[in-house]
């Protein structure tokens, strides 16, 4: 084995390099001034909480503060792994995430591919405008709508079921239906919006490819398969990586709002659990809740790195 000696810069050269750096920094001083406020925001509101996450390994006592509280190592993590709730919450989180990914991922792609073959500009515009709209509805209103529609007595779905002679169903009180209601309503709300990025990617597919394919007598099905899909593949992979990286990040707000004592067996996910343990329960288990939250963040980060690595090797496409 050969050892490589690092190139040692002559002190004078190093000094000149430093001077060049300073000069460049000085030339950007106005930009630095502009950036200082956002930078302060990042440090205070993003990086300080990361630093504060150390209370996951401490017994946090408010009067002693983050620094002053005592280290207890993995105590809270192990307590979580050993708790009765752990497997249930983890299973619900991952189950919901995969269900959402598998059912929800293709819909925007299908919508975008379809829209791409619409000739009438006005029809295309209208479809877009209408399908984007639900994206702007708030989570609270969305869940409110679900509860109204699915109400066992007055909801329109059960009114319809009664009309065709089927017994009313109390949808929200069925634990086995929770995930389906969550996923389908999410598709209703976000699939249209999700297709924007694919439409942009499709717009970037060279028209000459399509012209050549038409001359060769390729059908539209084949053009989708051989031209459009490969064309949007990079975007698909990037979005897939991102959603894998957010796998544990189930939509806290919506899940929390959809929860009720009956469906809690399938609807308790990590985020809602952290909230309840940390901020609602009387014990004020800040450290325990932080440990669970940190566990989630770390798993997310690892997933993101892993999937990105796989995508880089297999598909030659990656985030970084």
């Amino acid at each position: 084995m050969r050892t490589v000696t690092p190139i040692q810069a002559h002190p004078k050269v190093r000094l000149r390099l430093l001077a060049a750096h300073l000069k460049q920094a000085k030339r950007s001083w106005q930009l630095l001034v502009l950036f200082s406020l956002p930078l302060a925001y990042l440090i205070i509101f993003q990086y300080w909480p990361m630093y504060g996450a150390q209370i996951a390994f401490k017994d946090f006592i408010p009067v002693k503060g983050i620094m002053g509280s005592e280290w207890v190592g993995m105590k809270h993590m192990t307590r979580f792994f050993g708790s009765y709730d752990f497997w249930r919450v983890l299973k619900n989180t991952i189950g919901l995430a995969f269900y959402h990914l598998i059912v929800g991922f293709p819909v925007p792609i299908i919508l975008a591919l379809g829209l791409n073959y619409v000739r009438q500009a006005r029809f295309k515009k209208s479809v877009q405008m209408i399908t984007y709209a639900p994206h702007f509805i708030s989570t609270v209103v969305m869940v409110g709508m679900l509860l109204q529609f699915l109400d066992p007595r007055t909801g329109i779905v059960n009114q319809f079921l009664t009309l065709i002679g089927v017994d009313p169903v109390h949808f929200m009180a069925k634990p086995e239906l929770f995930q389906t209601i969550y996923v389908l309503s999410d598709i209703w709300q976000n699939a249209g919006w999700g297709c924007i990025i694919y439409l942009a990617a499709l717009a970037g597919v060279s028209p000459t490819l399509h012209e050549a394919a038409v001359v060769d007598g390729a059908s539209k099905w084949r053009r989708i398969w051989h031209i459009d899909l490969p064309g949007i593949m990079p975007v698909m992979i990037i979005l897939l990586i991102l959603s894998m990286g957010n796998l544990m990040q189930t939509g806290f707000e919506k899940v929390y709002l959809m929860q009720n004592p009956v469906n809690i067996t399938t609807s308790e996910v990590i985020d809602t659990y952290v909230y309840k343990v940390g901020l609602i329960s009387d014990g004020l288990n800040f450290s325990y809740a932080s440990a669970i939250g940190l566990f989630k963040s770390i798993v997310n980060l690892l997933l993101l790195i892993t999937v990105n690595q796989i995508a880089r090797v297999v598909g030659k496409e990656s985030l970084w």
Binding site: F45, Q46, Y47, W48, P49, M50, Y51, G52, A53, I55, A56, G245, D271, V274, Y275, G278, L279, F286, A289, S290, G293, L294, K296, S297, N300, L301, L304
Partner: peptide, 9 residues
């Protein structure tokens, strides 16, 4: 990609 978490925030 990484979040300090609800409680620290």
């Amino acid at each position: 990609m990484f979040d300090g978490g609800l409680i620290p925030r």
